[in-house]
């Protein structure tokens, strides 16, 4: 990711150049590692079942991962601040049904309006989460576990057993889920834009860097004059807004929506972020890693389906991957810590 030109290390740069290279290398390895795992997975599956790499199949892979990647981008913002948002699946469900309900009731409604309303609904849900976490001083795990059920409950009340079907939705909207621009599905394009935008914001803007500071040392961030509450609140609002966007896209892609849309997505999304190297205790990780994690998880599921592996093994393999990723992070983290300390003590000596 960091492909900017680094100035040649001058004479003032002592031990640190090595330490820096080491940590940069670890972060790159993290993302490259996922890409390598992806390539290996696709290659093995393709050998066993050549149809897996037909363009339709790959297209489906990318489409399936897109919504998860958007959610994972939002989740990353929250996790980096040492919080978590378990309610994203329910928020997606609400927004998906809103989009379906609006459009089946009024075929001529301008699509941007639907998107704006879906995103706004998600942002409002995120705002509620954020307010409870920052002003209410309630742990995010508890708050969003509560809103996970509450939002889902609202969805059930609202739908009242109804279901939105593809036939009642305007074609222009459904085409969003299938159309391509220059061969790239529209949905994938949106996901790419979202991931890149959030990634750049986290990397190159003060507000983004402050999220890392908050997650790395909350008390330190406060003493450094970071307005932590405001930043954490904005992370939750953004995560909610992206879940809202995901909801509208969900309806466009699948056409059929009921009150259960997006159930269980939150765990997949958190798993994607963790597999992608976002530390669950905050402070490190990137949106790119999380998005790649989403792609990897989606690809595993698809490849196991293609290989006709039983559903149980699909779940188990995702679990194994999670444990592997965490174990690897811990191992590499300890090694890097030790290396950094060694370099420091050499300097002191």
């Amino acid at each position: 990711m960091n492909v900017e030109a680094t100035p040649a290390p001058g004479p003032a740069v002592g031990e640190g150049a090595g330490a820096r290279r080491l940590t940069e290398w670890v972060f790159r390895v993290r993302e490259l590692g996922i890409i390598a795992a992806l390539a290996l997975l696709i290659a093995v599956t393709a050998i066993l079942e050549p149809r897996f790499i037909e363009s339709d199949s790959l297209r489906n892979l990318a489409l399936n991962a897109s919504i998860f990647a958007i959610l994972a981008a939002g989740q990353t913002l929250v996790i980096i601040t040492r919080n978590v948002d378990l309610s994203v699946g329910s928020v997606l469900g609400l927004s998906a049904f809103l989009a379906g309900d609006l459009l089946s009731g009024n075929q001529d409604l301008a699509l941007p309006v639907v998107f704006v309303l879906g995103i706004a609904l998600g942002a409002a849900c995120g705002l509620l989460n954020g307010v409870l976490v920052t002003w209410g001083r309630v742990p995010a795990l508890v708050v969003t576990l509560g809103t996970l059920y509450a939002f889902r409950g609202i969805a059930f009340l609202w739908t009242d057993g109804r279901q939105v079907n593809a036939e009642t939705l305007p074609d222009a909207f459904l085409n969003l889920g299938t159309d391509s621009v220059l061969g790239v599905p529209f949905l994938v394009l949106i996901a790419l834009v979202v991931v890149l935008a959030v990634g750049q914001w986290l990397r190159d803007y003060r507000a983004g860097r402050e999220l890392y500071a908050i997650g790395s040392n909350p008390e330190g961030a406060r003493l450094a004059g970071v307005r932590s509450d405001r930043r954490v609140l904005s992370a939750f609002v953004l995560a909610g807004a992206l879940a809202g966007l995901g909801g509208v896209l969900f309806t466009a892609r699948f056409g059929t929506v009921d009150a259960t849309a997006g159930t269980g997505y939150e765990l997949t999304v958190i798993a994607a972020a963790v597999v992608g190297g976002v530390a669950i205790f905050g402070g490190t990780g990137s949106v790119y890693g999380a998005a790649l994690g989403a792609l990897l998880l989606g690809t595993i599921t698809s490849s196991l389906i293609v290989l006709r592996v039983e559903a149980f093994w699909q779940q188990a393999s995702i679990g194994a991957l999670l444990l592997l990723a965490i174990a690897l992070d811990r191992f590499v983290g300890l090694r890097v810590d030790a290396a950094l300390r060694r370099r420091s003590s050499r300097r002191a000596a």
């Binding site: 740069v13 330490a19 820096r20 940590t23 420091s344």
Partner: peptide, 14 residues
């Protein structure tokens, strides 16, 4: 002599 780009993790107390 400290490299501004190295992470703080692992620095001595001094």
């Amino acid at each position: 002599k400290l490299d501004p780009e190295r992470p703080v993790r692992g620095l001595s107390i001094a």
